[in-house]
Design a protein around this nucleic acid. Sequence first.
DNA 1: ACCACTAAATGAATGCCATTCATTTATTAG
DNA 2: CTAATAAATGAATGGCATTCATTTAGTGGT
Lengths: 245, 245
Amino acid sequence: MLGKLSAERHAMPASPADSRRTTELKPVPNTDAARRSAGRPAAPVLGQAGITAAALRLIGKNGYAGLTMAALARSLNVAPSALYNHVESKRDVLLLVEDHLAALVDVTAFAAEPWESAVRKWAWSYRDVFAEHTPLIPVIAVLPVTDAPQTLAMYETVSAGFRGAGFPEERIVSAIVALESFIFGSAYDVTAPADIFDSGSMAESTPSFTGAVRSLAAQGHEKPADVAFSMGLEALIAGFGTLRA
Amino acid sequence: MLGKLSAERHAMPASPADSRRTTELKPVPNTDAARRSAGRPAAPVLGQAGITAAALRLIGKNGYAGLTMAALARSLNVAPSALYNHVESKRDVLLLVEDHLAALVDVTAFAAEPWESAVRKWAWSYRDVFAEHTPLIPVIAVLPVTDAPQTLAMYETVSAGFRGAGFPEERIVSAIVALESFIFGSAYDVTAPADIFDSGSMAESTPSFTGAVRSLAAQGHEKPADVAFSMGLEALIAGFGTLRA
DNA sequence: ACCACTAAATGAATGCCATTCATTTATTAG
DNA sequence: CTAATAAATGAATGGCATTCATTTAGTGGT
């Protein structure tokens, strides 16, 4: 009776990469309403909150490679199949984690500071949070906000900030989407190996690029990913700033 | 004797998401040098080129969910294990595909047009190519360019274009990285479902955001992803343009 | 005190996946 | 003819998410 949404499930094995589908989180049965109208079992030892916390603990210890349904269940002293009473799929677990992280993004500056510095703080915070969780990015990027209340709350605060700063209403969403795209892409950069631009044996055939890479390396103490992020972010802020009334 | 790099391989099952490691493509043994010094078998029916072509055919038909080593082997009338004579892992296959796609990105404008329009054309082309191949993005984003000659060639052309346009050498790489980050993030947007911003039952509690979404929808015939990409790209071009000598 | 109901947990099974390995096949250079 | 070698094979391994029939343990209503 649970999981009516799970039809047409295994038409394709759904590799973690192709995360696409109009999703809806399995409705949590532990509401007060359900509590009144039906028998309640032992205690909500598990539940979506417990699963989220355990998943975060697991990710923190072993990274996303260590986040398997089996490991998750083991860390909760439960059989893997038990998880499916609270969650419809592994993707649901990732969604729960994502929404938890969205709440960690700092949007407080939109209440107190001018638009430019508010956007700046928000963007850096957003990038930093998800740089540690890049495997979630393919999931977030196509995730209907309906399924992620905390994420939606972030959007509300940010768009209110844009509106209050005199942004024309029709362009608020596009501006946020553009910033987010830049942020997600930049989150990957943070995790890239330091030698990513080492052209190796092809150095002689790529003089312009090799020179530019050397020149950047010669410059710098700052982390390359931070330099690029700062440059791009300031350009976006300056460009979008001109749209305000 | 081949594949000395494959030690410490399966310490972790390496989900497609955690693609991290200093990689090197398995050296192709079918070089002229190897041809001279050793016996050569039947014909290069397979080989990295054949595998790449087959992988692209498979992806075109069934998407990345359909790209399994078994399916790839079947499409080449060969046992799955045979692939491992030409490729060290599935990740290698993805690398081959990525590098093939890099050659499809249009960089011709850097030879003939002013910097602004050259960057514009390159960025749109880059986004369009990888919007159809978003599962590759986690791989590319942390991929040492040594392993991807076509990708490296693209960087060379682009950085030469920046240099020729009067860009200060130390900032060329950062500017390209920032643009690329924006492009990768935007590629995901293209694949997002149309209703991604439908706030559903929470519409009343998110008036600012819901209003902004409605206002964008009311505006537009153009695809939302294209509007956001255009806005962000023009801001980046304008901002970076001021850095030129 | 009993019953009907139901959420939660179980354990076994399924089917898919990438990857390994000992062995065989086919080709060529000397 | 022989030694060397790349390529292909088929069977096996271990991991994975997910399903399902079944059991367990609470609850409100009677």
